[in-house]
Amino acid sequence: MGKGGFHLETKEPIIKLAIAEKFINLARANSIWPMTFGLACCAIEMMAAAMARFDIARFGAEVFRPSPRQADLMIVNGTVTKKMAPTVVTLYEQMPSPKWVIVMGNCAISGGPFAFEGQYNIIEGIDKLIPVDVYVPGCPPRPEGLLEGLMKLEEKITGTRRFPVPEQKW
């Protein structure tokens, strides 16, 4: 009301859930539980991100749930083969919404080094099968890369970034 002009009042929602929504989104962004799910090389770097040096727990994301029913985030970390693809899709569908997907590593992004003419066994990009929120490139990406991917996802959920972007000095 009273924002100037001739805006119809009915345009505003009757019950304002914006603040509650904001709080819940804030909670969601700060408590992203990934699924224990490893495919290939990148899975080791994902593990490294959860370990002592990088400690993904700082952002409340260390609760790796083995069951997709309790997970919020699927990290697709490795080559998705045609034999594995149905399983990946099933796992994604088993997760309760709201759910997010981080794609880690070139293999899952586009097939990476294994996409060549005459290939017969891999899916060239998991985004052909499931919606993807954040891409983390690398072969494999460093654990810092995954953490940055997590920040990006948080930014996507809440609209604000947790840490300021570091200055680029080159």
């Binding site: 290939a40 060549f116 290939q119």
Partner: peptide
């Protein structure tokens, strides 16, 4: 075979030098 990445097939499509990275990705 859930992670069959066709290394042996790739070897027949790559030169000897181009195959370096594959060896590393076989056993990470």
């Amino acid at each position: 075979g859930y992670l069959h990445r066709m290394h042996e097939k790739m070897a027949e499509n790559r030169t000897y030098q181009q195959f370096y990275p594959n060896a590393a990705r076989m056993d990470y």
